[in-house]
Computed example of a mutant assay.
Amino acid sequence: MKPRHRRLALILGGLCVLGIGAALVLQALNSSIAFFVTPTEIASGKAPKDTNFRLGGLVKTGSLHREGLTAHFVVTDTAREITVRYTGILPDLFKEGRGVVAQGRIGADGGFEAAEVLAKHDENYMPPEAKHAVDQAHKELGMVQK
Results as ranks from 00 to 15, higher is better:
38 T>N: 13
89 I>D: 13
37 V>N: 00
67 E>Q: 12
39 P>Y: 11
35 F>A: 15
57 G>M: 06
75 V>D: 04
63 S>G: 07
105 R>Q: 15
49 K>Y: 03
47 A>Q: 07
103 Q>I: 11
77 D>S: 09
45 G>S: 13
61 T>N: 09
65 H>N: 12
95 K>C: 06
109 D>A: 15
86 Y>G: 02
58 L>E: 01
80 R>M: 13
44 S>W: 07
104 G>A: 05
103 Q>L: 01
105 R>Y: 14
100 V>R: 01
66 R>P: 00
53 F>D: 00
87 T>D: 09
86 Y>W: 06
74 V>R: 00
101 V>W: 00
94 F>E: 02
40 T>K: 09
110 G>H: 06
59 V>N: 02
101 V>T: 12
40 T>C: 09
79 A>N: 15
46 K>L: 15
110 G>I: 06
115 A>D: 14
113 E>D: 15
94 F>K: 11
50 D>R: 11
89 I>E: 14
47 A>R: 03
43 A>C: 04
115 A>P: 00
89 I>K: 14
93 L>P: 11
104 G>Q: 05
105 R>E: 14
94 F>C: 10
78 T>P: 00
48 P>K: 12
60 K>N: 07
80 R>D: 14
111 G>H: 10
53 F>V: 00
78 T>A: 10
114 A>F: 02
48 P>M: 08
95 K>T: 07
114 A>I: 04
101 V>K: 00
76 T>Q: 08
61 T>Q: 12
76 T>Y: 05
43 A>S: 15
67 E>R: 12
35 F>H: 11
40 T>R: 08
